[in-house]
Every structure is written in C-alpha cells, then in structure tokens.
Design a protein around this nucleic acid. Sequence first.
DNA 1: AAAATAAGATGCATTAATGTATCTTGACTC
DNA 2: GAGTCAAGATACATTAATGCATCTTATTTT
Lengths: 191, 191
Amino acid sequence: MGERRRGADLERAILDAAWSELSARGYSGLTMEAVAERAGTSRPVLARRWDGKAPLTVAAIRQEIAKYPMNVPDRGDLRTELLEFLEQASKRAIGIAAVFTLFSSEYFAEAASVPNDLRAAVVQGNGTMLPAILDRAVQRGDIAREKLVPPVDALLGTLFREYVVMNFSAPPPDLRTAWVDRIFLPLVRAS
Amino acid sequence: MGERRRGADLERAILDAAWSELSARGYSGLTMEAVAERAGTSRPVLARRWDGKAPLTVAAIRQEIAKYPMNVPDRGDLRTELLEFLEQASKRAIGIAAVFTLFSSEYFAEAASVPNDLRAAVVQGNGTMLPAILDRAVQRGDIAREKLVPPVDALLGTLFREYVVMNFSAPPPDLRTAWVDRIFLPLVRAS
DNA sequence: AAAATAAGATGCATTAATGTATCTTGACTC
DNA sequence: GAGTCAAGATACATTAATGCATCTTATTTT
C-alpha cells in the first residue's frame, strides 16, 4: 500500500485534521490521538513536530485563517469598502472564534498572556487592512482625520470581535450594515 | 476537634474556594480535588452537591458576581450615571472574564450553547440596569428615543465586554470616559 | 438521651491522555 | 541500486482526575 505522505504535505494534512477536531469538539475536546487518527497517521508523527496541544492548535488556526486573506481594494467609497471589509472578516469568523477556544487552557495561565496577545500572534500582519481603508477615506476627504481617534478608530473591529466571540458565528449582513450606517459613519463623517 | 461546617455555610466556603482556584488556574486547571482541599473538605462532599466541574464553576461565578450588585440611582445626569454604571461593572470584570474561561469546555460542546447564553444564565436579572438608565434619560429629554435603536442601545455593554474578554481585566477609567464622551453620547444625544 | 443526618477521611478501580521506545517499511538522495 | 531518513504501527509505563463505596464522627432533631 503506497502513498506515504511526507514533509509539508503531511503537515498540512495534520493541521487540517486538527482544525476539524477543533471545530467539532473544541479545544478541551481535542486530543493528539484523535487528530492523528483523523489525519490517518499516528501520535509519534505529531509529537515529532509539535510540543503539545497548544502549539498544534495555534498552527492549525493560523493555517485556517491564511485560507481567507483580507484584501479590500480601493472602491472610491468608504461605506462600500467598510462593508466589504466586514464581509471578508466574516469568512474567517470561525477561525477567530476558535482562538478563544484556547481560553481556559494552560496557554494563558503559563504565558502570563491575555487573549489580545494571542490574537496578535495569530493574525500577524493581517490586521492592517482597516487602517488602510480609513487612510484612503481621509485622503479622499470622506472623513475627518481628527475624528479618527482611539477608541473610535478601532470601533468596527471591536464590534466584530465581540459578536464573534459571544456567538461563535459570523455577524449577519444587516447587523454589519447597521454598525457602519448607525454607528461608525455618523461618528467619523466630516460634518 | 469541633467546628464542622454544614449546609449553606459549607456551600459558601466551597464556592469561595472554587472561585479562588478558578482565578488562579483557570477552568481547565480547576479540579474537584484542589477545590476540596482548599476548602478544607473532601471530594465526596462536593460530589454530593454538584455534578462536576461545569456546574460547580457556574455556581462559583454566580456567587462572586452577586457580591457586586449593580445599582445606579438617578443622578439627574445621563453622563454621570453612565460613568457610574461602567465603574460598577468594572468591579465585576474578573467575574465576567471568568465566564469565558469556560469557553473551551464541554459546556458549549454539549449544550449546543454559545457564550451569550451562558452570560444570560449567569447575570440573570442583573442586566437590566443600563436600559433603566437610558429610559430615565429619555424621560428627561437628554436623548432621543428614536436614536436608541439596536445596536446602538447596547453599545456600551458591547464595548465593555469586548475589553474584558480580550484583556482579562477591567477597562481603565479614561477608556470608559472615552467610550461615553466620544462614542455613545454623540450617537444618542438629541441634536 | 437516642436517632437521624451529613461531614470528613480513605481506599480502590477506572478512564483518558500523554510520552517514549522500538521496529518495520516506504520513499527520496546520491 | 544502496543507503538514509522519516512515516507509520505498536506497546508499555506514567500521570491525573474521577466515581463510588465504606466507615467514622460531629451536629442537629425530636
């Protein structure tokens, strides 16, 4: 029986399996055993690559999130771009929610870390899309630079995260529209 | 050696111990054994009262949160009341954060439940303070009723939760002030 | 004072997961 | 085609926590 996977191939398959387990049972329900079985391999193979549940899980989440890159091109209109941004972000909602599955874990207890740190580690440079959109809008004169001050500048991200974390699912389109039209734009629009 | 605790007395002591363990090690690090030892009792005593980790933890969180009742009397001024509301809420921040410590647990996996459901179960009728404050402000004419529409009406609670969950700590006073002055009041103030 | 009840201590079997060592076999390198 | 390396399969010991049963002892009830 041929077909023996190696290196990056194998690694990808294992991370996919880990992601499936994570989605199905959550972090506490994830075992190396189950991941190995689902990936059609065995525990020693996992043990050679990752040090335990936490590193494996982080790797799996990062691979998953990387599948949905954020990219909002210039549409000439802030509102359109913000809605597009939220739509794309919603595609990775489950990945984001999974991060919080790590909450109760040793991860935070040992690392003296808080969820925000983990989030930063997972998204890496991926979190720069919103500032770019807002910058363009300022250039255009759609919004006033002086209104774009903390905590207003990060408001949409904040609302999005809260929803995802509390509901383990993506915010519905009409809620996203309400965020933009009833909250964010009224606050920043040059009046 | 006298002094044998019973009934409600004993129960309170156990829940305090469970809370301490929860704060110190997080949900995944909490064991019936450790709670029993910290409370100066033994596992069978816990087993007779709670069915396992999850129910014990919920009970401990509820007892903790009950120690900081929310009560914002009429101060005649919306801004003052909102700041007071956020200040009181901050006192229970750790309790709220602890709720999310349950994330990775069997709790959500089995109950087909999301964090919002758990939150509702824990706060019970305690979450009605903000609507009351806003109602008063509408009566006074400080804010326009028609601006108090979802998701604006719940905005302060949303911001508060997001901060607590992401940072495992209470928001600092100047951030709370910024939420009120730069975000919430501009949105609802009768213009 | 006697009886009922529940606290507190202890022991044991069970379950679940992990780490690690060993061995065979397939696949890639030179 | 030989040699090397890692995949894949097993096995075993260890650890951690739980459930349950039993027994003693303190406290409350009547």
